[in-house]
Amino acid sequence: MSKQFQFKLVLLGESAVGKSSLVLRFVKDQFDDYRESTIGAAFLTQTVSLEDGTSVKFEIWDTAGQERYKAPMYYRNANCAVVVYDITQSASLEKARSWIRELQRQADPSIIIALCGNKSDLSARRQVSQEEAKKYAEEEGLMWGETSAKSGEGVQDIFTDIAKKLPKSAPPSARTAGGRTATGARQGVDLNKQANATGGQGEQCNC
């Protein structure tokens, strides 16, 4: 029997860059022109088989893009993060940068971060050049790739690349039959904690 490893992956990025569409393509190989905006977060899983015979199961937390829903619980204890921007919206790369800064400050230091430029099928409307994004990713030591959730291009690659890069030294499957192991910590957003935390933080919603 092949070894299976399990990791928590979180998707972050500005509203409407295609986070849920990337997940839908990756998990079900489907696409909707319009996906309803994600409220809170959506939980899905998908397994990637690697050439060396191991397989990696992702527990995916697809988060809401609106600032209002921002909750550190989603990336806390995440093993990897896919930070998504829209290649046709330069402002979305700025938002991605701010997510990456936050992850570098607050997330687990061993987190693997992939920067992902989505909507590559719309390259005629491109505002973010590959060079610019790639250069930034290299400077920050991030993985980088462009994807099209619509055509499927690059989607499998980015998740497979992450799967390859994740450390396989951890015991296979971080979860025992009884639930989370001590290090696994609890999953799910705790908006309660967020409500308490927002008071002291600089980043507030526009109200």
């Binding site: 409220i39 809170g40 939980f43 009884g178 639930g179 989370r180 957003v189």
Partner: peptide
């Protein structure tokens, strides 16, 4: 409790939408 499932992780969208 055992599976460490917080209610917010599935019920947020129920109450908000």
């Amino acid at each position: 409790k055992k599976h460490m499932i917080s209610t917010t992780s599935y019920a947020t969208k129920w109450y908000i939408t």
